[in-house]
Amino acid sequence: MLEIIDLHARAEGTEILRGINLTVKAGEVHAIMGPNGSGKSTLAHVLAGREDYEVTQGKVTYDGHDLLELDIEERAALGLFMAYQYPVEIPGISNKYFLKAAINAIRKYKEQPLIKTSEFLDLLKTNLAKLGMDKSMMERSVNEGFSGGEKKRNEVLQMAMLQPKLAVLDETDSGLDIDALKIVADGVNALRSPDRAFVVVTHYQRLLDYIVPDFVHVLAGGRIVRSGDKTLATVLEAEGYAFLEPAGTPA
């Protein structure tokens, strides 16, 4: 589903990714771990297409497409979803309106008919219940005045509504207490399926207790320095990142 070959990227003149190679198949969950400044979030944003980063080398194939040639919204329409570490506030626009606009934008791109309001509301109701979210949240402005936990839960709600093929979770556990973490993880686990893949970016092993990955990769200095199965995360938890060679350039 996703094949990254020798990916190099920089921001404001500093090279952050220095040759990433990664293959993700449908149905798999890959965890990307690593110390601060190792390039984890950069990798997530480069996949999503953030324009602050310049890809200087390498190739990314996603679902048969040359990912780096696609606009941000095209990637989204083709099923690439990113859960943000810092979800953005949009004052005056209700969560419900935003969700519907997103669903319809994607349908429009795919030349599908727009979603019927009743269908949308049913889907929303089901997903809200799964995530233990109150429907009053839907009338509030997108992420405005939400607590950290509410924001992250809202990201997972959007993911559930948009049903992506590839979900990139950027530090979804940051700022969550253990209860919120469990709810978010449950939401993600409910979406695991043989035709969907996840790339989970995290600093701590804690999240991986709840979202159990098939593969764990350690990123340092803009490269994947070690890959393994879920036990690698436990090793990291015990030993920290100290075993790594001199840490990469902070972003």
Partner: peptide, 17 residues
Amino acid sequence: GEDQIYYCRQRGIPTED
């Protein structure tokens, strides 16, 4: 904000919209 536009686009909503 560029962040707002980026966020919307990541959800499939084109820049103008």
